[in-house]
Design a protein around this nucleic acid. Structure first.
Length: 459
RNA sequence: GGUCCCAUCGUCUAUCGGUUAGGACAGUUGGUUUUCAUCCAACAAAGAGGGGUUCGAUUCCCCUUGGGACCGCCA
């Protein structure tokens, strides 16, 4: 059996986090089964589709490591084919022109709403004998009796009574195809074998199945994955503040972590939590996908991100960091690259996100440190004495290492009859600008000797 | 309102009729530590309710309740 999967977003906005997961599942299923994963841009809504969104979607997916096979497929380029299929459906008696005006339909909808009745197009034009003049949409002649069954790979057997499916529009008044038609024709043309999409598409599958049947085409496998809900328990919408991929990237989530999080949201494999990309391909299966919607959990995202930050290669981490700050903060000065790279090992220890690393690294990135008012208050006369004592000892040290530094600090603790905090805190404030920050030895050893002395003498 | 769907700790989930219902995140407590954090240990935390089926139900069926999706000449 071949596996041709696709992700088919419409370029009408930035990539949605639910869409990212749909793409991921499609990609995973294809890779797992040595099949193909295609990207199809559904740009048949001329008003709302934007080229910038198309580019953004492609680059977002690629950022996540989801690369599609072949060129991306642009739906609008295949419109002629869609229209031809519509005409064929008319010829076969499966579709008909409908002359009802939008105003008429709106009135019917309003009436239905007022009476609390379900609205379904009344099929007024379904059996017109004569062709009329004037603008018309083309509607699909939906079955009026019987039931349609879909054996969904995630949801199981789903049954619906055909009478509840209305005669949906397949060609607009301006003769442009609608989603139901275009998606079906393209899935057929692309020889898609597995359609994985959000559960909100379930009803569309029933409609589209009728088109496949009418055309005598083979119906693909469907898998409707449960939706991702906001923390309020509703379908994630653009209004939610963590809804787009960008929302996660900009707070410093790295791609592997997000991929891992999304994979485990609605899917599981035993008790395993962390999956490398390759493991996710090897282990993924539609049977592991749950049926109920899942809520987004920022704590879990941070936690997984932290795990990745702490375990990936430091050079890779540095490259992610560099990419992140140049996009969302401030590009790293060439002269600082080396020291930052060398310092990743301890900067990452206190970080859940790339943004945390950025904050931890401020004392390296900025040549001038600013001491907060609260911290300034902690610098008393004893502190100043400690700092100047340390400075003179430090200047005399023949070599710098944790081993040579430690005795210096210890002797200062003894001399001033204090504890580590009494010595460490003022030094950290002098060097970092805050009583919080990386370990003291790490800080001292990461900076140039002249820089350390400069900062100490400024107090 | 109609149609369809879902239901295990706060959250993500394991269990595929027999378990002290497991793990992870978050939470609480204690310990290590060089601030902060890490790290370690412990604790707390769930089968919505009611009927069946069965020797036995979280697991299978039905009802109730709760939640969700869809109901565009958007996709």
């Amino acid at each position: 059996m071949s596996f041709n999967c696709r992700f088919a977003p419409s370029p009408t906005g930035p990539l949605h986090i639910g869409g990212v997961r749909t793409a991921l599942f499609n990609w995973l299923l294809a890779k797992k089964n040595k099949g193909k994963y295609f990207l199809r841009i559904e740009d048949t809504d001329k008003e709302r589709s934007k080229d910038e969104f198309k580019k953004q979607i492609i680059s977002s997916l690629s950022w996540l490591g989801i690369e599609h096979d072949g060129e991306e497929y642009i739906q609008s380029k295949n419109i002629n084919k869609h229209v031809a299929v519509a005409e064929e459906l008319i010829k076969k008696g499966f579709a008909y022109p409908c002359y009802c005006t939008e105003k008429e339909l709106d009135e019917q909808k309003a009436l239905a709403k007022r009476k609390n009745l379900p609205f379904i197009y009344n099929r007024k034009c379904r059996d017109l004998k004569e062709k009329k003049d004037g603008p018309a949409v083309i509607r699909f002649k939906s079955k009026m009796s019987g039931t349609t069954l879909i054996k969904d790979l995630v949801q199981g057997e789903r049954n619906i009574s055909n009478s509840t499916i209305e005669d949906f529009v397949i060609l607009r008044k301006d003769k442009s195809p609608t989603y139901q038609l275009s998606a079906t024709v393209d899935d057929h043309e692309m020889e898609i074998t597995h359609v994985i999409r959000g559960d909100d598409h379930m009803i569309n599958s029933f409609k589209q199945k009728q088109i496949y049947d009418a055309m005598g085409w083979e119906v693909p496998n469907f898998a409707h994955i449960p939706l991702i809900h906001s923390e309020q328990g509703k379908k994630l919408s653009k209004r939610d503040n963590a809804s787009t991929l960008e929302d996660y990237v900009k707070i410093g989530i790295i791609s592997d972590a997000l991929r891992n999080y999304l994979l485990r949201l609605g899917w599981s494999y035993k008790d395993k939590e962390i999956f490398t990309k390759q493991e996710s391909i090897d282990l993924f299966d539609l049977s592991g996908v749950g049926k109920s919607p899942s809520k987004l959990d920022m704590n879990r995202i941070y936690s997984i991100n932290e795990t990745y930050i702490k375990t990936i290669d430091e050079k890779d981490l540095f490259n992610f960091f560099k990419e992140y700050v140049s996009k969302y903060k401030k590009p790293i000065d060439q002269s600082k690259e080396n020291i930052l790279l060398k310092s990743m090992g301890f900067l990452k220890n206190k970080a859940k996100t790339l943004e945390d690393i950025w904050n931890n690294a401020q004392y390296i990135i900025n040549d001038k440190i600013e001491i907060g008012t609260d911290d300034k208050k902690l610098i008393d006369d004893l502190s100043k004495k400690v700092i100047s004592d340390f400075t003179s000892d430090y200047e005399k040290l023949p070599s710098l290492s944790r081993e040579t530094l430690e005795p210096v600090i210890k002797s200062l603790i003894d001399k001033h009859k204090t504890n580590f905090k009494g010595v460490g805190q003022p030094l950290r404030i002098a060097l970092v600008g805050s009583r919080f920050g990386p370990g003291l030895y790490d800080v001292i050893l990461s900076l140039d000797k002249t820089e350390v002395i400069k900062r100490l003498k400024q107090i």
